[in-house]
Write a protein that binds this DNA or RNA. Structure first.
Ligand code: ZN
Length: 407
DNA sequence: CGGATTTGACCGGCGC
DNA sequence: GCGCCGGTCAAATCCG
């Protein structure tokens, strides 16, 4: 794995292609990143900046889409650009039958978001997992037009999961990786089980009590889907339980579990408020750093809000703020720990968090260094300490849809 | 031997 | 319609 970039060539700064549209696109400014996974090799040097620095850098880098993009994207969902979120929520709402086909839903809308993270190795590496807790199999690598670094493509190894991610190294910062996630995992992370000790099998089979009848929603498409030549995959039908599947899924709890657990932490009622309402004013600049050692910033991929928004999770579990370009998420290590273990992944959780509007604040915290030196063998390892995320506006809706079906 | 990578071919979308 | 490009496939290869 590794290798890659010899990179010498250097890219013009810029700009060459940028499209902003409703798909994804991250920083257009500096257009190169790089990539590849594996963390490999990097590490040297004096690069260990404070996270705030990182955030700063990251922030300066972004120059993507704007509010209009969001709107257009949103309109796609049927809204007029603003509060449609609420509407959507409603429509999906509770009354909906418990039938939903993740495959369908997921395929329908784009669900992508990118994270910028420093390369650091985390403990998961040892377990052979990526920093994000999932296990990925690389299925391709390609060099990108104006980027010196190649982009690698990974797919979740879980047979019934079609989550994908692409990784490239940031152009200028060797220690920064841009990871774009696409699709939600239909299962818990492996680390989740690991942390719960107990044989995975046992854990998998015995979902937490609080769990809704998630088992009923397991995808019936057990392992077949993957590794199979392009067959009419979409034949997806409502999901039905399939004991088989359940059994097979060692680490395969349903997505629902994940969503449920994370959402349970906040008042559902609040969820109804419009997720992306824009409120003018607010100076992003005013940032109060919380006592969060770790912070990450996220920005919309295709849609960068122009107005600062801030969302905060209720139990002060997390705090997110969105300024012109990104959403900053703050949490301490403990929280991160929880997020990545008990609740699934940051990756999955983020979209949910964003749905909770709240007070505004900005982040700028520094995090504790903590990096472990290990090197992971599988997929790139990233540090959880700081990351910026950007996702397509659409993604929240997916969650919403699913959630509402649950509640 | 099985699973993960590597890597060039293949393909579909898009802009010209 | 053509060619550029990013994303995937898949055969060959690597590795434990
Ligand atoms: Zn997965």
């Amino acid at each position: 794995m590794e290798e890659l970039q010899g990179s010498s060539a250097l890219p013009p700064p810029l700009g060459a292609d940028q499209r902003s549209s409703q798909y994804y696109y991250w920083n257009n400014n500096k257009s190169d990143f790089g990539g590849d996974s594996a963390a490999a090799a990097e590490d040297d040097g004096p690069r260990r900046r404070r996270d705030s620095m990182v955030n700063k850098l990251i922030s300066t880098v972004y120059s993507g889409p704007t509010i209009s993009d969001i709107e257009s994207a949103l309109s796609f969902t049927g809204g007029a650009g603003d509060q449609l979120a609420v509407m959507d929520t409603r429509s999906y709402s509770s009354t909906a039958p418990v039938v939903f086909s993740p495959e369908k839903v997921l395929s329908k809308m784009e669900n992508k978001y990118t994270l910028k993270m420093k390369t650091t190795t985390g403990g998961n590496a040892a377990a052979g997992l990526a920093e994000d807790g999932y296990k990925w199999r690389k299925y391709g690598q390609k060099s990108i037009k104006n980027s010196p670094n190649p982009r690698s493509y990974y797919r979740c190894t879980n047979p019934r999961c079609n989550a994908k991610k692409q990784v490239e190294r940031a152009t200028d910062e060797a220690d920064t990786l841009l990871v774009t996630y696409e699709g939600l995992h239909l299962h818990y992370t492996y680390s989740h089980f690991l942390h719960h000790q107990q044989p995975p099998a046992a854990a998998a089979v015995a979902p937490p009590p609080t769990t809704p009848p998630a088992s009923l929603l397991l995808s019936s498409s057990s392992k077949r889907p993957k590794l199979h030549p392009r067959g009419p995959p979409t034949a997806a039908s409502p999901i039905i339980v399939d004991d088989d599947a359940a059994a097979a899924a060692a680490a395969d709890l349903d997505l629902l579990l994940l969503l449920h657990s994370s959402s349970s932490r906040s008042s559902p009622a609040q969820e109804m408020s419009s997720p992306q309402q824009v409120d003018g004013g607010a100076d992003p600049a005013a940032a109060a750093s919380l006592s969060a050692p770790a912070a990450g910033s996220c920005y919309f991929d295709d849609a960068a809000g122009t107005e600062p928004l801030v969302f905060q999770q209720q139990e002060d579990y997390l705090c997110c703020s969105i300024d012109e370009h990104y959403i900053n998420i703050e949490m301490d290590e403990q929280q991160q720990q929880q997020m990545t273990t008990a609740n699934g992944l940051l990756e999955d959780v983020v979209p949910l968090l964003v749905r909770r509007p709240c007070s505004r604040s900005r982040s700028s915290s520094s995090s504790s260094p903590e990096a472990t030196a290990a090197t992971s063998s599988s997929s790139p390892s990233l540090s959880t300490s700081s990351s910026s995320v950007s996702w397509n506006p659409m993604s929240p809706y997916i969650d919403m849809a699913i959630l509402s079906n649950i509640f």
